[in-house]
Amino acid sequence: MAAKFIKLFLYVQKSNLKTAFLNLSDALVNVLMMMLNNFSYIFMWWILFQNKGSINGWNFGDMALLFAVANISFATYALFMRGLETLPEYIDSGGLDNFLVMPRSELMLIAFSESSFANWGDYLTGFIMYFFSGHIGWTSFGLLILVTILASVLLFAIRLLASSLAFFINDSQRLGDNFFIAVITFASQPSSIYTGWYKVISLTIVPAGFLVYYPVEVIRAFSWTNLLCLLGGVAIFLALSLLVWRQGLKHYSSGNRFGVR
């Protein structure tokens, strides 16, 4: 079962790469533009840290680590699971029917159905920022890989929750997009500012804390408690998103759309 799944995953990724390489120069320009886009945002924060020195105990090195975690986990999500963003469209138009009759997991097929080559620029940005963070070492690199995999699973769960709104609310594409972007925006702030109620919100309604706060803390000063908190948060949100997805499927009535795939 797992072998078949991996084989299908690799096949889809190979196809996505082939499609991107059809116009190699365009693909590379997009990667460069993505990096420019990321660094212009990072530049803004660099300026702020230049002016203020530190924010609640965080310096720019810590912020660089946050950018490394955020960019690498987002790249993993965008390259391998971005198809979830089109789920509301499939639900609204009845296009989901085509996936439901497939002999493989419909959720995985939808998730793999889209990939954006430009997001390789996020990987590059992430690794560059890691080297600027001042937390370099084999152990921290291993932890970086581990926590970004967990964070990308969390992104998958959050996007699935946002997209599954379409089962219950009409025309919810933009609502889901905004919820997802809100989480990413929340995650792009220095985690040191989240104390008190802000911390509660960042771990519940907008779970940005599990996306960056715990991953960054695990790398900065490893503790099993932080790693277990991260694992627990990811597991809870993944379970919740799969539950909502299952309930949504029960709620879903076909769009009676005729199509061949």
Partner: peptide, 8 residues
């Protein structure tokens, strides 16, 4: 839904 999303 779209308006509420932006407001959120």
């Amino acid at each position: 839904a779209s308006l509420y999303g932006r407001l959120f």
